[in-house]
């Protein structure tokens, strides 16, 4: 009896591993492998025409935050890198805030529609999301460029005398990224909003809470997991955004993604590119830890 059950459990374990194998192979080859290569490359010396020399070096990691003056050999902070890093984090956070400010009311609006109409509204949110990223970015460009729709209207109405410079500024990046990643905020917020029991909202009103108090004390705490998830979903791709800053920043407003691209491309410094990529990964990990902690606290308080 015992033997039989041991055999069975052993067989079950074996089957489980067998079933997991395809996933494990893909994970190893597609995720772990490349990551390992990036880690190794970041500790090597750059080759003269791209690629790497197999010689151990800390230089690229050192170069992420500091640089040696070309002439005086004096050590100083790598202003350029830090500026880009700071701009990336700042713009990503601002994009999160902006998409929350737009996405939260939108999700609330959809969640409060009759059930059969919600799908239609969600489809309207999703259609742009399914459109090619480049096309959407160029659409924003068409709106905000000097001879674009907004400026033509402003000029036509006589509100401004000359076109407002919006393209190639941080503002244009912010608008572009918010537009591009907004659905990633709306979806999780809507998902938790849809599960919200609207009797609770009525209970709030019934217990003398004004609209704002109901929002703050009842609705927001209950959809917070969705807001946190949405924030992470927006923050992570923003941090590594490449296309949007490239098109709307016009090469002036570099973000981390563009900096990494530069290292691997024109500047032919693969180890520095690898080190910068890992820096980006680290920032994302820190953000994720915050996320897991926030959710963890929710979970604990529920038990």
């Amino acid at each position: 009896m015992t033997d039989l059950s041991t055999i069975r459990s052993r067989r079950e374990t074996r089957d489980r591993w067998l079933l997991l194998t395809p996933a494990l192979v893909i994970l190893t080859l597609a995720a772990m492998g490349p990551l390992l290569i990036v880690v190794i490359y970041s500790f090597l010396t750059p080759g003269d025409y791209g690629g790497v020399e197999w010689q151990f070096s800390w230089t690229s990691w050192f170069n992420v935050v500091a640089e040696r003056d070309f002439f005086t050999e004096e050590l100083k902070l790598a202003d350029a890198h830090l500026t880009v890093l700071w701009r990336s984090v700042k713009l990503s956070l601002l994009t999160v805030i902006l998409s929350f400010l737009v996405g939260f009311p939108t999700a609330y609006f959809i969640a409060t529609r009759p059930a059969h109409k919600r799908d239609m509204w969600m489809l309207l949110i999703m259609i742009p999301f399914w459109t090619n990223l480049l096309i959407r970015t160029f659409a924003i460009m068409q709106l905000i460029r000097n001879h674009g729709t907004i400026n033509m209207i402003l000029l036509g109405l006589g509100i401004v005398d000359e076109p407002v410079q919006m393209l190639y500024t941080e503002f244009s990046l912010l608008v572009g990224m918010t537009y591009v990643y907004l659905p990633l905020m709306i979806l999780p917020v809507y998902a938790s909003m849809e599960r919200l029991d609207f009797n609770l909202v009525e209970a709030g009103y019934d217990l003398y809470a004004t609209r704002f108090q109901v929002l703050r004390r009842v609705i927001f705490p209950l959809v917070k997991p969705g807001v946190v998830a949405g924030s992470i979903l927006v923050f992570v791709p923003c941090l590594g955004a490449y296309v949007t800053p490239r098109v709307l920043g016009g090469g002036k407003q570099l973000m981390l993604g563009n900096l990494i691209d530069l290292q691997f491309g024109q500047l032919r410094n693969w180890p520095l590119g690898a080190a910068l990529s890992l820096t980006l990964l680290a920032v994302v990990m820190v953000a994720l830890v915050f996320y897991v902690r926030a959710i963890g606290r929710e979970g604990e308080s529920d038990v």
Binding site: D197, N199, L200, E202, A203, G204, D206, V218, P221, L222, S301, D302
Partner: peptide, 11 residues
């Protein structure tokens, strides 16, 4: 009001 579903605030 005492709601049919009670509508207690779960948080």
């Amino acid at each position: 009001t005492v709601f049919q579903s009670y509508a207690l605030f779960p948080h």
